[in-house]
Design a protein around this nucleic acid. Structure first.
Ligand SMILES: NC(=O)c1ccc[n+]([C@@H]2O[C@H](COP(=O)([O-])OP(=O)(O)OC[C@H]3O[C@@H](n4cnc5c(N)ncnc54)[C@H](O)[C@@H]3O)[C@@H](O)[C@H]2O)c1
Ligand SMILES: NC(=O)c1ccc[n+]([C@@H]2O[C@H](COP(=O)([O-])OP(=O)(O)OC[C@H]3O[C@@H](n4cnc5c(N)ncnc54)[C@H](O)[C@@H]3O)[C@@H](O)[C@H]2O)c1
Lengths: 219, 219
DNA sequence: ATTCAGTTGTGACGCTATTCACAGGATAAG
DNA sequence: CTTATCCTGTGAATAGCGTCACAACTGAAT
């Protein structure tokens, strides 16, 4: 009975999200040859508070210097160690339509630790094509390709009615994490982690709150 | 009796997001000619608790029947009244690259209350083309088109370095809500509402938590 | 008319994330 | 060395959200 073998402490999803943002910020600092950074600087650039930043960084194995702040290189390594699998994780995009194609193009060959290596679809027009260096396979080949390429994550960009079956196929093949863009709630075993990105919902939220702020400006 | 004074009560962003989900669910119920629905049914289909659903619905002007649950038609109208502007809101997609094109195709002419009516880009190859019934204009025309079409919302899908300037142009033209897909934090006046959809962050979160459930990947 | 089963609406509560606030620490300057 | 300054790390306080639990209610059955 193993629960959280690698991670000793429960960690908030929000913290992981913010760590990912800090990590990307560190890349730009590194590019600008910045050597040290304070929590309040990371806070300023991400829109969180400095206390939030320091609290988040408690999760990773790092030690800030009370006078110089955090060493950029060391902090980068610490977050990497915490956030990414040592050997990396492979990702597939399922459903190479308008959205899937954008995802495939954007994420293929981007990060060494998290690389999109394959696409899947049922449409003969797309199958066997190579998009941005990524081969698109037929759904029938999920089992084989997922095993061969050691794919553990899937981004689902298929029509709603195809989402659950497609997820089932991926899970049966060994995928343990799904980023779902279809507007349906997936039923998955507890060993699989699903995150649901509902763009329509986000747009409606922006529409609502934009109107709230609108009313405030009195002309 | 409830009168529509301004929305004086602070409402949680999460609640608005969930209302959007309930609203979409009601469409499918309506299509199936379901007349009444219980909070626990909405809960089951969305993955929240029934108490959560009822709590959320307190925000909208509705009254459930203690025996039959909520009237689907009435609840739909109530959420619509609460969530959407009476006259609708127009949306533009800025940056018609891979992602922008997917957004434009997906959201154009979809909902009467929230319709994408224009695209903007700087690339001559895209400008003046019509995608899924939506004309793509040059960024120079933002001012004119936003005013003419009464656009109040923008979905930003431009490269990171172009995001802040593009946002500034939109805001100057009168846009008060932005859904930003570029991985940068936008600086905007308080009268503008910005929501940041960071797909890289979501993917990294899925990668992290998928590994937690995975456990050891050896043999 | 009365009972009964099953629901809504909501005050009270509890949990978790975030912020506060400060002890302790590093460095530069005198 | 000593002081001044401004940082980190973190216990404690706070705030925000979701859940519990139950009174009030509805309609059906008898
Ligand atoms: N495009 C967007 O901006 C956008 C926005 C919000 C939500 N979404 C959601 O994302 C999903 C994809 O959107 P899209 O615009 O790319 O749609 P799309 O129709 O352009 O693409 C869907 C793709 O999935 C493939 N497909 C269909 N059935 C399949 C199956 N059983 N297995 C594998 N592949 C299958 C199709 O061949 C097609 O290539 C939809 O669920 C949509 O609701 C998209
Ligand atoms: N495609 C994805 O799946 C994906 C995933 C995560 C994040 N993003 C982000 O979304 C944004 C767009 O991604 P993409 O893949 O569509 O990129 P893309 O390069 O395909 O498209 C960018 C578009 O913006 C246009 N553009 C450039 N400068 C502009 C300006 N100043 N004003 C208006 N338009 C301008 C370009 O002509 C191009 O059409 C990027 O910031 C990217 O980081 C995309």
């Amino acid at each position: 009975m193993r629960v959280f073998t690698t991670v000793d402490q429960r960690i908030a999803e929000q913290t992981i999200g913010r760590l990912s943002l800090y990590r990307r910020l560190l890349d730009t600092l590194m590019r600008d040859c910045v050597e040290h950074v304070y929590s309040h600087q990371l806070a300023e650039k991400t829109g969180f508070t400095s206390a939030q930043v320091r609290r988040d960084l408690m999760a990773v194995d790092t030690a800030g210097n009370t006078r110089r702040g955090y060493d950029v290189g060391e902090l980068t390594r610490a977050i990497d160690d915490y956030l990414y699998a040592p050997s990396g994780q492979q990702v597939a995009v399922v459903g190479i339509g308008n959205l899937g194609r954008a995802l495939l193009t954007f994420f293929s060959g981007r990060r060494p630790k998290l690389s999109v290596v394959a696409g899947f679809d049922v449409d003969e027009q797309v199958v066997d094509r190579v998009i941005h260096g990524c081969r698109v396979y037929h759904m029938d080949e999920v089992d084989r390709v997922v095993a061969e390429d050691e794919i553990t994550l899937a981004m689902l960009a298929v029509p709603s009615e195809a989402a659950q079956p497609a997820a089932d196929v991926c899970i049966a093949a060994g995928v343990s994490g799904i980023l779902n863009f279809a507007p349906v709630r997936l039923k998955v075993p507890p060993s699989v982690y699903v995150s649901h990105v509902d763009l329509t919902m986000y747009l409606e939220m922006v529409a609502f709150f934009a109107r709230q702020t609108d009313g405030d400006k009195g002309d």
